[in-house]
Design a protein around this nucleic acid. Structure first.
Lengths: 142, 142
DNA sequence: ATGAGAATTGGAATTATTCTTGATTCCGCG
DNA sequence: CGCGGAATCAAGAATAATTCCAATTCTCAT
């Protein structure tokens, strides 16, 4: 009953094609890097991590691939101040907490039932397409 | 009785010095531009608006002054995606709504009693220093 | 007045990102 | 299998915002 399935379903989450996006070797690899280590790497960090497996990858391609993945809603681009963009495979709506001490970035989920209109004086009639919540602070040291 | 005061008390709100920040001509002018037209201009927009009155102002100085004002808590720097930084004299805690249609940026106040911990699953023990809430969407056209 | 420290200037340097262009790969079809 | 068009990739040049730097100018307290 399980005879046909390989014993390592590693790429289970990496489809060959998503809504018209051709999943090339580079895109797969870059996506894999993002889900493997969910630490919100920059394009350059992704580039460095990918070099092992794709020795003649170019940084421009990393940008192209990340952009393609973002456009197709497979990953999200995260910006903090004017630092380099970072990339995040967590598609659920969430915010980001930047730990001032370590520089680390942590996803912060919204509480169930979260509703913007409950906390903000929105302009009447405004339609919200996108929300970005970023926190900066410190986590307990130990 | 009014003999000694000039007839145009324009700079009423612009102190000569704030908490150790020397309010030079350039800084005053730049601050004035920000409170005069609260449309979140970029450094370059500030630069262009200031040229009338300070013909040999340099863009580097605009950046320096804006930075000084930000450091001293007199204005705030606002970043949206990776666009140029914008500057805002509204010191009360608030978010920003970007109208996709017009490109305009509008301040959005928090509702009274707003509390982050009510809406976000904050990491336990986290101390928040700063919150940034950015919305993108559309306002009713008329 | 004057001298030290701060601010301003203009231009050069930096950095992340995008653009350009030509080469390569992919994919359906004969 | 092999071709043609389309998509993708690579490499380096180009861009844009911001910062840095060195030289001048201001300011203010003495």
């Amino acid at each position: 009953m399980v005879s046909k399935t390989p014993d390592q379903p590693i790429v289970a989450e990496i489809p060959e094609e998503i809504s018209g996006l051709r999943m090339t070797r580079q895109r797969q690899e870059i996506y894999r890097i993002l889900i493997e280590q969910r630490d919100h790497p920059t394009a350059n960090e992704v580039f460095m991590r990918a070099k092992d497996r794709l020795p003649n990858l170019s940084l421009a391609t990393v940008y192209n691939c990340l952009e393609a993945l973002v456009q197709h809603g497979i990953i999200r681009q995260v910006n903090f101040e004017r630092e380099s963009s970072r990339y995040c495979p967590n598609l659920s709506e969430h915010g980001h907490f930047h730990d001032a001490a370590t520089g680390g970035i942590h996803d912060v989920d919204f509480k169930p039932g979260f509703n913007l209109a409950d906390v903000l004086e929105l302009p009447p009639g405004a339609v919200i397409h996108d929300v970005e919540i970023t926190l900066r602070g410190k986590l307990p040291s130990p």
